[in-house]
Design a protein around this nucleic acid. Sequence first.
DNA 1: GAAAAATGCAACCATCATCGATACATTATG
DNA 2: CATAATGTATCGATGATGGTTGCATTTTTC
Lengths: 156, 156
Amino acid sequence: MIDLRFPTTLQMMLSLALAQREGDLVLSSAQLAEGAGTNASLVRRLLPQLAKAGLVTGTKGREGGVRLARPACEISLDAVYLAVMGEDPLWAARHNVPHRCLVSNNMADFFEGLTRDAQAALVASLARRNLADSLEELRVIEASAEAALRTAARSG
Amino acid sequence: MIDLRFPTTLQMMLSLALAQREGDLVLSSAQLAEGAGTNASLVRRLLPQLAKAGLVTGTKGREGGVRLARPACEISLDAVYLAVMGEDPLWAARHNVPHRCLVSNNMADFFEGLTRDAQAALVASLARRNLADSLEELRVIEASAEAALRTAARSG
DNA sequence: GAAAAATGCAACCATCATCGATACATTATG
DNA sequence: CATAATGTATCGATGATGGTTGCATTTTTC
């Protein structure tokens, strides 16, 4: 099954950033689930990990909900990724490879270093955006889509 | 299930590089499978993709087998990755998200760009090594492990 | 004080890509 | 012609993930 944890969590965080910008609103897990096109159960499984990482704060009880723990511009996407996906290696070497030659003897160590490098590059690429940047990117995408629509209407 | 295609393929390619360095030998899929700790079926499913990408050439028939199509120093690890894993995006956005707000309206486009950036960073990190480099790294790892063993034997 | 509404947590099943195994056609060598 | 290899197809097992439901706990509101 395709792993949807990161896209789902990212959409949740962007929704929270939008809610924060529009009056410091709190959102319930049901609202977050509805916005992301999933169910409240998955949201409630992801939220505690974000809370542990210090990215969101949840308040229980009636009128409770979730909000960002920091301003959107201070939450970069790599923090979101690491909070949900953990430090688990991107790839895993095979276990139980027989030790027979230079390659099979040292493959595990070599692959671990390779994976670490690749993962660091991945995380660094995510670190180049924060939630506020991303909201602005979403705005630009929407504006360009609207412009394309207007052009199509004029020519059609 | 954890995806082992890349680690498995990489070990196959390193085994081929080693065989090439030791006299331009060809290896059978059974030999490759044995070295990687898996079965010939998986190897024979991975090999055609490497052949399509122009990384290996296979010869059928008795005394047939597989060899690198190019010198090891001209095969970088990103080529191996792309050959086996394809251009498929690293992550996939959810489909069927209701279009209700700035975030849910444009999440798919935004996430596609984000994924493209991350994947490019990943591939670029793999591109920094080729098979010959990796063989040398394996040699260094083995030497350092042997040195550690000798030290332990002397002090123990 | 009780009802309501929220989080947090646990258990269970469905899904589905991957791995492993087997079989078979094809091809090339000796 | 026998042998040994690739290339391909099919089938079942595996296991992480998503979805559903239920419930205890907490906090606000009436």
